[in-house]
């Protein structure tokens, strides 16, 4: 199986503080990989390194075949990224957001045009194509942000808590999109605080104090820790020693 994200003893130190401590894992093509951990466990630092935004202190990692030390620009071109905090421009319309990001990712105008039609059709956003994103319901924004992160057909997309705040049906509609993308071969690398979503992943890792403390399928983790749910696994592991 092709490995799309590979981390080998990847480490980041800030002064004396080791934010990410020798994490090692490999994510398959088309896999939904849940990257879990308590606030402050080191997830964001690890994600920033994998996205080519932060230089590691030591260790190695390759994303979509590119090196996180020497090929960060290639990585940024080839990955998709979406987070709750940073995704769409609220004061641009739906159509303008697609066009803008299409340009950023280097798509040619005809490609942007056909992608725009595809997204508007697929998300049933035709009627609000020229509406400012600010006025759309949160669930629509999340689905649009994901589609935009997928504009340049990246082999892997990083999602940082993408589903916060929406109703349970909208949250599941978002996951339907993730399943579909994964079944078409896109690797999904996702963080979430919803433990039921952890169960939807093919495999999950749980970070504690900068280290990966557990990594397996949800079913095997539940069996290993003798609990009924991923929430149970998380409650056992995730507290760690840090109180920050």
């Amino acid at each position: 199986m092709e490995k799309v994200v590979i981390a080998d003893k990847l480490t980041k130190k800030f002064g004396n503080f080791i934010a990410t401590n020798e994490i090692t894992f490999a994510v398959d093509k088309g896999e939904i990989f849940g990257f879990l951990g308590a606030n402050g466990a080191g997830k964001t630092t690890a994600m920033r390194m994998l996205c080519g935004l932060l230089k590691p202190s030591s260790g190695d990692a390759k994303v979509a075949g590119f090196d996180v030390y020497t090929q960060t620009e290639k990585i940024k071109e080839r990955i998709g990224y979406m987070s709750q905090k940073f995704s769409l421009y609220e004061d641009l319309t739906v159509r303008e957001n697609i066009k803008f990001y299409g340009g950023i990712y280097g798509l040619r105008l005809p490609a942007i045009k056909s992608k725009t039609e595809y997204i508007l059709e697929k998300l049933s956003l035709g009627e609000v194509a020229d509406t400012l994103v600010a006025s759309l319901p949160l669930g629509w924004k999340q689905r649009l942000a994901f589609s935009i992160a997928m504009l340049h057909e990246p082999p892997v997309v990083f999602l940082d808590e993408p589903t916060g705040g929406v109703d349970p049906i909208t949250r599941r509609q978002f996951w339907d999109m993730l399943y579909e993308a994964a079944s078409n071969g896109t690797t999904i690398f996702i963080t979430t605080h919803y433990m039921d979503e952890a169960e939807y992943c093919n495999r999950v890792s749980i970070m504690v104090d900068g280290r990966i403390q557990a990594l397996d399928t949800p079913r095997r983790l539940r069996e290993q820790y003798g609990v009924e749910s991923m929430d149970g696994v998380f409650q056992i592991l995730a507290r760690g020693t840090s109180t920050k």
Binding site: G37, A38, N39, Q84, E161, G164, G165, H193, M195, D231, F234, Q235, A238, R239
Partner: peptide, 10 residues
Amino acid sequence: TTGVDAVSRK
């Protein structure tokens, strides 16, 4: 508890 991890929520 929005945006807070599952352990802190508990």
